[in-house]
Amino acid sequence: MEGLTDFWNMVWPELGQGLGVTLQLSASALAIGLVIGLPTALARVYGQRWLRALATAYVDLLRGTPLLVQLFFIYYGLADPNIGQLFANVGLPKSLLVLSPLTAALLALGLNSGAYQAEYFRGAIQAIGSGQMLAARALGMSRLQAIVTVIMPQALRLAIAPWSNEAAYMVKYTSVVYVLGLTNPDLFGAAKRIMSTHYNQMVMLPFVGSIYLVVVLCITWVMSKLETRLRIPGLEMEVERV
């Protein structure tokens, strides 16, 4: 029992702070992803041809390459002096693309999540079917009015379940940022530090893993509560997601 208290006192201050960083990172990246993902989904469904192509390219690129590659590209790749020189040549500050580890991590996670969220929202929008859009237009609503009053309220509800998956993934994915060595490390980064000095993997990894697990379970629970609360009879995903 005493050993347990000692262990707790030894690891918790650092892990607690790490957990805070992980949660902040997750929340910010999900928010960035939402801000990017929703318009991207709308662009893919309702946009002009070039806008659709652009949105599709973004989604394919970010979903088709490893997160770690994206992270390194944004942190190390953009900081390349040659690129800085290019910027300087057109009169932009050279240091613009030299990002702090935290900024790079946020940017990579946010852009990556944006691509996945775009797909979830697109699936939800397309599950609604074209008939209701037609009916809204027939009443005299503009396309934008129809999207805002008819399509979005349904699409957002339908997207809750896939979105809660994305949130759960994000909490776990943030662990890759330990490779950048943040000054205030995330949960896994903090665990790595502790492992290198105090406790071995067989103790720390299950412990830190179960912290992630608890967080993910909480998110899933909250989101399913939300889904139930907002449920409307007859509004369900009719189309299987792929």
């Binding site: 209701q132 037609l134 009916a135 009443l139 005299g140």
Partner: peptide, 16 residues
């Protein structure tokens, strides 16, 4: 469109 009412085969009511 506001002056011309339309009723569809499959209703197309707003589900939400």
């Amino acid at each position: 469109r506001a002056k011309v009412g339309m009723v569809f085969q499959d209703f197309n009511l707003f589900t939400h």
